[in-house]
Structure formats: structure tokens, C-alpha cells
């Protein structure tokens, strides 16, 4: 039996990217929410992501790493076209990483400065990622409309991360901060609705092949399950945050789970649109794939590394489960 290796690596790359967006998404979202909280709440917010944020970023390294080694030609095209937003994202991630370590040691206005940089870095990285998504799904075309679209996707991905971040805080905190997070989550939800609508409308307009795939009766009827499920998850967040706000009995993990569901569904829709292209309408995963012997060699490494990644992620979330306490991360 011969394995379709480009397909295997495309699936692994997709999984790594989805893990990254969900996991780093919530801690970037918490970073962006920092200015909305007071000093004591900020300590709790940082404590809630303290044990996780570093490991969350490794998924980005894995995803881009797979793109480089398994689809080298596509890596050149994609990262070449996205040169500037990648640079901005890296600077954003650097700033927030340094701010995370230094803000604890700083006092007075120094700490305020690092808090501001933590917010700015989180925002810059999130915005750059959304901008890249906008450029990627429109095939890197240049022009005012395309740039505007990418900027809009950038802004709405920030909103999406705010939704993930605030629902994460609902899960990890209680009392006043949790009540604040409930309100933030609803704002985030509005932005996510915009983001999902934008991307869903833009991709079929930009690409004929995407349009053909989605408007192909009777398959369309089955495919409509995706947007319907996304709507249901959005409504679920609204209803659940409402119940929590009124103090009715409701598990505190529900909004976060529903937010993750929205991201997973959007990802599935995007994957369906793009497949089998790695650069939309230009290059399929088989055209971009590295030589078979190289892929076979790497598969050995992947088979060893992936279970460890999954295992330590699961372990970390198990150890640090429950509500966050200030000073947990010093």
C-alpha cells in the first residue's frame, strides 16, 4: 500500500494551523483585553495564560515548518508574498514575549509600559495574522480592494481572538472579572460574525473553483450544514453567556467550547474551499510537495514528535486546570 504523503502532510499542516489559531488565539485575545481590566484583574488574566502561552506558539513553528519541508515551493510563494506582514507578526510576538517576562519584574510606570507593549504586541501579531489570511485567500492579488479586504479580515480576526480570549477568561476566572469577560465575549462574537461572513462571501467571488465547489447541487444542501452549525455555535455562545450573566446554572466551559467550535467549522469550510490547492487556483499540494524520499524521511520524525506534542499539551492543561490564581506565574 502506498500512502498519499502530500495529503498526509497537508492534513498535519492543517491540524497544526488550527491548533495554533485556537490555542494562541485565546492568549493573544487575553493580551488584547488587558487595557480593559484594572491592575489586579490584569494579574489574574496573565496568570490564566501563564503556563500555556509559550507552548501554544510552538504549533505555529510546526505548521510553518511543515510548509517549508513538505511544500518548499509553496513556502517560497506564500512567505515571499507575505514578507511584510510576517515581519510585523514576528515583531508583535517578540514584543509580547519580552513584555510577558519583564512586566512581572517591573514596578510603577515601568510595569505600565510593559503592559502597553504586551497589548500592542498581541494586537500587532493578531492583526498581521488576519491580514495574511485575507491576502492568502484572495490569491495575493494586489489592488486597493484586496488590501482593504485584508485589513478588514485582520480587524475581524482580532475580534475572533478577543472572543476566544474572553470565553477563556469566563472558564478560568470568577466574580467581577468573569462578569466583565461575559460582556467582552459578546463584542467578540459580533466581530466573529463579520469575519465569517466576509471570508465566506469573498472566497467564492474571488475564485471560480471555490464557487463551483459550494454551489453544486445537490451537494450544496449538505454543505449548508457548515454555516448552519456555525450559526448555532454563535447563538449558543450568546445564550450561554446570558445564562451565566443571570447567574443560572451553566457550565463555565460552554462559551469557550462553542468559540472553538466556530473556529473549527470556519477552518473546515476554508479547507474544503482550498483543497487541493496550497496556493489558491495556482498550485496543488501534489505540485508543491517535496520529493517522496524526503517526505518519507520526515514522516518518521513526525510520527515520533506529534504524539509527544499532543501528550504534553494535554498534560499541561490537566495540571493547570481550574480557576486561575494571581501569582501562580512569577
Amino acid at each position: 500500500m502506498s500512502l498519499d504523503l502530500p495529503l498526509v502532510f497537508a492534513a498535519l499542516m492543517g491540524l497544526a494551523m488550527l491548533m495554533y489559531v485556537v490555542l494562541d488565539g485565546y492568549d493573544l485575545g487575553v493580551g488584547m483585553l488587558m487595557p480593559a481590566a484594572d491592575a489586579r484583574e490584569q494579574e489574574l488574566m496573565v496568570a490564566s495564560i501563564g503556563p500555556f502561552w509559550d507552548a501554544n506558539e510552538t504549533w505555529l513553528v510546526l505548521g510553518v515548518g511543515i510548509l517549508l519541508v513538505a511544500f518548499p515551493v509553496a513556502h517560497g510563494i506564500v512567505l515571499g508574498a507575505l514578507y511584510l506582514p510576517v515581519a510585523w507578526m514576528l515583531i508583535g510576538l517578540m514584543l509580547r514575549g519580552v513584555a510577558f517576562e519583564f512586566r512581572i519584574k517591573a514596578e510603577g510606570w515601568h510595569r505600565e509600559l510593559w503592559n502597553a507593549l504586551f497589548w500592542f504586541g498581541s494586537f500587532l501579531a493578531s492583526f498581521a495574522q488576519g491580514f495574511m489570511l485575507g491576502r492568502y485567500i484572495t490569491g495575493f492579488h494586489s489592488g486597493f480592494g484586496y488590501t482593504l479586504f485584508a485589513l478588514l479580515v485582520g480587524a475581524s480576526l482580532c475580534g475572533g481572538y478577543v472572543l476566544l480570549g474572553s470565553t477563556w477568561l469566563i472558564l478560568k476566572t470568577q466574580g467581577v472579572l468573569q462578569a466583565k469577560a461575559l460582556a467582552w465575549a459578546r463584542w467578540g462574537l459580533a466581530w466573529v460574525a463579520l469575519a465569517v461572513a466576509l471570508v465566506s462571501l469573498a472566497t467564492p467571488i474571488v475564485s471560480q473553483s471555490v464557487q463551483a465547489k459550494w454551489f453544486d447541487f445537490p451537494r450544496t444542501i449538505l454543505l449548508m450544514l457548515l454555516p448552519l452549525a456555525t450559526l448555532a455555535a454563535g447563538w449558543w455562545i450568546w445564550a450561554s453567556t446570558g445564562r451565566l450573566k443571570r447567574g443560572e446554572s451553566e457550565p463555565d466551559w460552554v462559551p469557550f467550547a462553542a468559540a472553538v467550535a466556530i473556529f473549527a467549522l470556519a477552518f473546515a469550510g476554508l479547507a474544503y474551499s482550498l483543497f487541493p490547492f496550497v496556493v489558491i487556483d495556482r498550485m496543488t499540494i501534489w505540485e508543491a510537495a517535496a520529493h517522496r524520499s524526503a517526505l518519507e524521511f520526515m514522516l518518521v520524525g513526525v510520527v515520533i514528535v506529534f504524539p509527544f506534542l499532543i501528550a504534553y499539551t494535554a498534560f499541561a492543561y490537566r495540571v493547570f486546570r481550574g480557576k486561575a490564581r494571581a501569582g501562580l506565574y512569577e
Partner: peptide, 22 residues
């Protein structure tokens, strides 16, 4: 890669400024 001189200049400046500040 295909990045223009202006792009490279902008990113290099940003990196140098960021690293110096840090």
C-alpha cells in the same frame, strides 16, 4: 526571494529598532 528593497529596508529598520530597544 522577491521582496523589494523598500520592504527589506522597512523590515530591517523595524528589527534593528526593536532589538535595540529590547
Amino acid at each position: 526571494g522577491g521582496a523589494s528593497g523598500a520592504q527589506l529596508g522597512a523590515s530591517l529598520t523595524a528589527y534593528v529598532v526593536t532589538y535595540t530597544a529590547m
